[in-house]
Every structure is written in C-alpha cells, then in structure tokens.
Design a protein around this nucleic acid. Structure first.
Lengths: 245, 245
DNA sequence: TCCAAAGGTTGATCTGCGTCAAGGTGACAT
DNA sequence: ATGTCACCTTGACGCAGATCAACCTTTGGA
C-alpha cells in the first residue's frame, strides 16, 4: 500500500514532488500543473512572515530555507530546515505560524492554496502522502527536542554534522565513497539558532572536534569525516535512524 | 470544508474521538466499532517501548501518558504529553520511535493497526482529519523547541503552567471562572523532563514564582493564577495561540 | 506505632556555556 | 591598494543552572 505513493516528476520541475500518487499520476498531475507556479527568493530574503496570510503551499525546488521563531527581545530558534523536495505550508490554516527565510537562493514550486485544498479533498492519496510526510517531520522534531533539551554543546555540533551528512547522502544516493565529507549550508550563527547555542560556542566546539581529530576542515564550511562511527558516538545517538528532516 | 470534520462520540467511550467525519458518521463509525477495544494501564506502566512492534493505534480516553526519549547514560527528554482525546501511533510505521508511559492511570481506546490502515485508505476524511491533528502537533512541537532552546528556567516553568492551564480550559470549556487554577498532573521530575531541566531547578523556580506572587500554591500540585497576563509575560510568550498539545 | 519509600524543598558549590571584547580572513567595490 | 562588510576565531570572565547533599512531609504497609 505504501509503495503506491512514490515520487513523480512534476512537469518542468528539476525535482520530483513527493505528494502525488503514481497510479493516478496522469489525472492528478494534470491538475497540479494547472495550479502551479514558481517563485524565486534571494539568500536572506524572507519568504513568509509569521502571522502573515499564506496564499500558497509548495515545495522547495532548490536551495535551503529555514523555519524560525523569534521572541520580542530577539532570541531566535530555528524550528525547521527545508531542503529540496520539502513541503511548506499547511492546508486548513490561513496564517503562517513561523517565519520562513531563504538561507541560500531558493526556488519554490508553489500551488495556490484554495485549488490545492480542493485537490487534496478530492484526491485522497495526496492527503495520505502528506500525512506520512508530516509524521516524519514530527518524529524529526522530537529527535530535535532531545538535542535541544539534553545534549551538550559538543554533542549538538556532532549531531548537526551527522544529520546533514545523512540528509545529503539520502538526497544524492551516494554510498560511502571512501572519505565522507559534507558542505555545511549554514553560517555559524544559523547553526547556533538551530542548536540553541551562541555562535561563539559553535565556533569553539567545531574547533575542538577538529583538534580531537573527529572531523577535519577545509575552509570554514567543508567538513570531512574520517570515522563516522566516532562522530555518531560523539553525537550521543543511539537511535541511528531518526533526524531526517 | 474544515467544519465538516468534528468530534463524534465513539460508542460507549466517555470521550469524543477526533479522527472521524460527522457527515459520514454512520458508515465509518460502524467500521470503527468493529475493530476497537480498550486497554487500561497503571500509573508508571510502560505502554510501548521505543523500538517495539506496534500492533495498534488509538486515543487516550482518560488519564495522562507521555512520550519520552532516553539516551544510554540515562538523560531523558519528554517529547510529547498525551491528554484525553490525543492520538497515539502512526499508520504506515511498524515500530514505535519513542517510549510511551502512563503518567497517571490510563485508559486507551485502541484499534488494531491493519484494519485501521485499511479504513483510512478507504475513508479519505479520516486521513484528512489525522493530517490536521498531526499538523497541530507539529506546530506544538516547534513551540516546544523554542522553549527548550532559548527560554530561561523561570520562563520554562511559567510556560508549562500556562500551557497546562490552556489545555485544561480547552478540555473543560470553562470560561475564566473568577480565580484561574490548575492541577499539575506531573511530578517535579516529570516537569524537569518536559522542560529540559533538573528537578531541583524546577522546584526552585516554582518557589521563586510563588514568592514573587505570580502564582500561589495549595499543596504541591495545585496552582492558582491570580493574574494570567502576568504569567504569560513571565513565560515570554508573544504567540499566545500555540502550544496546544 | 513505627518504618520505609516517594516526592519535595533548600543550601553550598561547581561548571558549561553565555557575554563581552579584540582581532583575523576573504570577497568585493571603489 | 584600500576600505568595508560579512563571517569566523579566540580569550577572559561571569552567571544560570547542574550537581551533591541534607532534610522535610506525606503515604501506606507491617
């Protein structure tokens, strides 16, 4: 039953959307095509402000966006990291609950909300697929809560690197090609917002992991991982499978 | 469209399940009735272990259960608090990702997983309703992440009290009956696990809020709130609406 | 009636991370 | 070449909350 819902190519999108059903592909795709459009955002640009009216839902085609919350005094916490193929927005709610910001240049494939809602009401498979994706995100959020509530700064950094490595591997379908390495798509400050730390602590802990031979750095952003097991041990992860979003 | 999905009474359950559709009530309810059964758990008993095979999904009828994660060295983080009418389990996954524990005595109304999955595949409204509930939970998890990552101990305690007050109010449909008061359904240690603190810090901060007149205590567990706005200010909440789960 | 266990409070001390501050590096425009 | 800006690193210091420890209260069982 689950295999029924697979990724399908959406017209001229460079990616495969995840919310459509393979069997019913032609019909649904035709309808999706009619209501979709593209929007581009520059790095740093805000895609949606918390509290704003959301007139669309959509998925990230390229680039990286982040969901953040900010308190009045300026304290910020990232609560979601959106990579290509991730879905944004929620059917059945008219205003956004969080800020969505383009971390790098971003292209999104959008669907106007009304027609999309009609579509999911008429096409049960899409609702089911969305449910599945949302449950995955919820699990990831809960792993993240363990990280925020109980892990040390060093463990947080090691976790972040292994999360990004895992997601990148999943996206590129690479099998361990000898030396494992990752490009961090975030500034130190953004990592700090992700991890509930300050940017100084992030910088210090990355230096410490480097000094201890857990990682090596080329430039500020490119990380090589000589021993993945060692990194996972530093991350304090037992549940190896989680944290996919 | 949304109003279409309302709570309906499920046979002899004392509560209204939230995952069924009013219009189609008779059909779907008949099917739900056929596959449901009840289970009781004592306070402290584990309902499901993380990694275990889950043979059912269901909702809490009475009592309080919690979702927790534990690291090998014993550090624990609560990642979900299940009050009556909350849903447990996920269609499309065979093993549990987190420990589910009965915090008080708990009665659950369960559905065997296979028939339930068949049911949601055939009854689109249930999938849509589950999607809506899951999105609410995701929003709540993200509010919780802000709490864990950026709030001070004092703000965390104030937030917890206001969250419980709000949920209790929502459940009982009470309008501000003069003096607002709440029973904390958790021990100090459980609150600590919820908030990413130690039980000593929880105890100290509750004492501090009491000393400063933000709350008053009767016994260890019963809290009165003389001024809700004051409490919300202490909690650092701007987004007054969130944190419903 | 007394004991034990669970839950809670409070004090003293320690420490990981935040805060403040100074300086380094590379990209880019003028 | 030089200034500027964004980003990063490192050091010194302080503090919020963890840790360790003592003691209180309530409950229930022998």
């Amino acid at each position: 039953m689950q295999d029924h819902f697979v990724h399908v190519q959406c017209g001229d999108c460079p990616i495969r959307h995840r919310a459509v059903c393979a069997r019913c592909e032609t019909d649904e795709l035709a309808q999706l095509e009619q209501i979709k459009y593209y929007r581009s955002f520059q790095a740093g640009q805000t895609i949606i402000w918390s509290g704003d009216r959301m007139e669309f839902v959509g998925s990230v085609v390229s680039g990286i966006a982040s969901l953040t919350q900010t308190m009045e005094d300026g304290r910020r916490q990232m609560v979601g990291l959106l990579l290509p193929s991730d879905f944004v927005g929620r059917p059945g709610r008219s205003t956004a609950a969080f800020d969505v910001t383009a971390t790098t240049d971003v292209v999104m494939c959008c669907f106007r909300k009304k027609p999309f809602e009609t579509l999911i009401a008429e096409t049960p498979h899409i609702a089911q697929r969305l449910l599945e994706m949302t449950l995955d995100e919820l699990d990831a959020a809960r792993e993240w809560m363990l990280l925020l509530g109980r892990k040390t700064a060093r463990e947080k950094i090691a976790s972040l690197i292994s999360i990004i490595a895992r997601r990148e591997a999943a996206l590129n379908k690479k099998k361990a090609t000898g030396q494992l390495s990752v490009d961090l798509p975030l500034t130190r400050e953004e990592m700090a917002d992700y991890l509930g730390l300050t940017l100084e602590t992030v910088s210090r802990q990355i230096s410490a992991l480097k000094k201890d031979g857990v990682i090596t750095l080329e430039g500020n952003r490119h990380v090589s991982i000589p021993d993945l097991d060692r990194l996972l041990e530093e991350a304090g992860d037992d549940t190896d499978g989680g944290m996919l979003v």
